[in-house]
Amino acid sequence: MQYLISVIDNRTGSSTPEEDAAIDAFNEQLVAGGHWVFAGGLSAPSDATVIDARGDGEPIFTDGPYLESKEHVAGFWVFEAPDLDVALKLAAAASKACNRRLEVRPFL
């Protein structure tokens, strides 16, 4: 079972060296526990491009994120976990490590 853990933030590139160190340590635990699948930080929402190729013509590119909001996804993890209890426990540790709120969402 895999879970997407989105890091919720209202700024980008805002992590402190202490937070980075805590995230590295947490990631090592994830790997050691067999829960690591993937993780990454994202650049600013203003760097995003929305693409719509549903119509007959050329794809339409729109500068900026699909949703303007105060908060955005600043990074993510993908955990491998047997159930939601394990995923929530890991996510609680991840939230502490990166010092941000997180959203846990299961893959289909």
Partner: peptide
């Protein structure tokens, strides 16, 4: 079902 909330009594610690 989708998030796989487990069907069990939580561990002593939880």
């Amino acid at each position: 079902k989708a998030a796989k909330i487990p069907y069990r009594v939580p561990s002593a610690e939880d």
